[in-house]
Design a protein around this nucleic acid. Sequence first.
DNA 1: GTAAATGTTCGGGC
DNA 2: AGCCCGAACATTTA
Length: 264
Amino acid sequence: MPELAEVEFYRRQWRAGEGRRVISVEVHATKRVFRNADASQILTSLPGGVFRSSVAHGKQMLFRFGAQCWLTIHLGMSGKLRVEPAGFRPGKHDHLALRQKERTLVYSDPRQFGRIAFHRGAQPPDWWINKPPAPNEPGFTLGAMTRALNRHRKLAIKAALLLQNGFPGIGNWMADEILWQAGIAPGRPAAKLSAAEVRALWQTTRSVSRRALRTIGKSFDAPPRGWLFHERWSRAGKCPKHRIPLRCATIGGRTTAWCKACQR
DNA sequence: GTAAATGTTCGGGC
DNA sequence: AGCCCGAACATTTA
């Protein structure tokens, strides 16, 4: 489920526990979400430390504990963060539970495409420090967008927008929304866009990202009326502008919806 | 019962 | 070598 704004929303759920000590930790250590982590290291390192701070970047989240401990969490397709009362009993899909005196911070993920990693050090892991700019950040310039597209010249523009190295946080619904609002057909090779189209795509990528963060990211409110978002999930979806049925095909390995009249 | 799901990674083919 | 596509991962829901 989670893209840029949903990830930010879930990060905020755990903020209820910031500044408070972690008393104990429970994990489903053999589950796939720990494939990049040593679960026993989490079990021995986090208890006793204060949950200090958190930040999201694209689809990744970083959490700081104690003096030198960090968790990075990716929510995959079905991951969520939520808060439960103290004494909560983790369910089948609640793979990580951080117990505090007042509450339990829970990570759940039925499909287990998400992942958790542990890092010890004064600084976050190198890959976090060196991450490329996300579309909601100042570093996401027209030049950065152009370079990202030029690295994948033959790839359908829809597939290019899904690459996290170039567009951290963009996922399937955001890519469809951006292409629809920018008036660009999803199957066009990335290198075939004109300079004016790349500029329009850049501006739309930024505005959709910022608007989604202000609605979904803050409170999980629906994005603005008139967005493709409200139509693209159902097989009978219609273009919000033309009220004609949306086209539907697999592009970049993902279900893609677009309007033949809007997008060229 | 079958298909599809807001994501990433890997292996094979060109 | 590099790029691109499809399969795989695990589970629920329509």
